[in-house]
């Protein structure tokens, strides 16, 4: 399978519709830039395989609020 290159502009359009988010026109270019940057940065950990029994780093402790 070949991987399609990431189209940040198209993604912002569709993901904003999914999230019900209206992006002001003056912010659109900045949001696209930031998504491109996040996409680039995330590659550093997304491809590191993890064993199935790796628990998330977050911990929840049940109990009554004080």
């Amino acid at each position: 399978m070949t991987q399609k290159p990431f189209d940040a502009e198209a993604y912002v359009e569709q993901a904003a519709a999914l999230a019900g988010l209206s992006i002001p026109a003056e912010c659109r270019a900045g949001v696209i830039d930031n998504l491109r940057r996040a996409h680039g940065i995330a590659q550093a950990f997304l491809h590191i395989p993890l064993p199935d029994d790796t628990e998330p780093g977050s911990v929840f402790t049940p109990g009554m609020a004080p």
Binding site: Y11, V12, V31, N34, F45, L46, I48, P56, G57, S58
Partner: peptide, 28 residues
């Protein structure tokens, strides 16, 4: 602030699966 706004807006659109993987990666 214009210097935080566009990054925050972008953060609303990132895949939830990335978040789950990042939290599991943290334990590792």
């Amino acid at each position: 602030d214009p210097d935080t706004r566009d990054r925050f807006l972008a953060g609303l659109l990132l895949p939830g699966e990335w978040y789950a993987q990042a939290q599991r990666f943290r334990r590792h």
